[in-house]
């Protein structure tokens, strides 16, 4: 019985030690906070921040090379969450880029369906040879539709001011 116990214990210790060694040799450097930031970002990979995708932007934000307010689709709510997570002073940030909304000029649209296939958030509705329209609540202003439109009928504009989103202008800096 002692032999059996000893052998199993020794085997377990040896394998555990080998695994520990392997874990060190094959260690993957992963910053858990990068994954957390990436999960908060919209994930539409629009590239308006100037990075190839949301995961690259998340890495840059954690490293501090990108501002936490560089994501226009995320808007103010995302900036606040990220500033809290990454411990950045909100007041030290400059003006955030204004969120843009796509609009389709219905006098030019031919209903080619190219834009709604390109839309990462399914914000464009329409059918073949029917004029398309943008659902502004879903649009993140990524400009992917603008790039594929053969008629050049999509434009990106800041959100029009309505009673629901109007606010006082910020006081001007001295």
């Amino acid at each position: 019985m002692f032999v059996a116990t000893l052998v199993l214990t020794a085997l377990g210790l040896l394998l555990g030690w080998l695994l520990g060694l392997a874990a060190k040799v094959f260690a993957v450097e992963e910053n858990p906070i990068v994954n957390e930031v990436e999960a908060l970002l919209p994930g539409s990979q629009c590239g308006q921040c100037g990075f190839p995708g949301c995961s690259a932007a998340a890495e840059a934000m954690v490293e501090g090379t990108a501002a936490v307010n560089c994501c226009p689709p995320g808007g103010r709510a995302l900036t606040e969450t990220l500033a809290e997570l990454l411990n950045v002073d909100l007041n030290s940030l400059g003006d955030a880029p204004v969120p843009q909304l796509a609009t389709i000029d219905d006098t030019l649209c031919t209903g080619c369906t190219k834009c709604y296939k390109a839309c990462p958030t399914d914000a464009i509705v329409g059918a073949t040879r029917q004029i398309h329209a943008v659902i502004s609540k879903a649009c993140t202003g990524c400009s992917k539709c603008k790039d594929v439109c053969p008629e050049d009928c999509i434009s990106l504009n800041p959100e029009p001011v309505t009673l629901n989103n109007w606010h006082w202008t910020k006081p001007e800096a001295a």
Partner: peptide, 8 residues
């Protein structure tokens, strides 16, 4: 061990 290698 295999999992560590594949992850890397």
């Amino acid at each position: 061990f295999t999992e560590a290698v594949v992850r890397k």
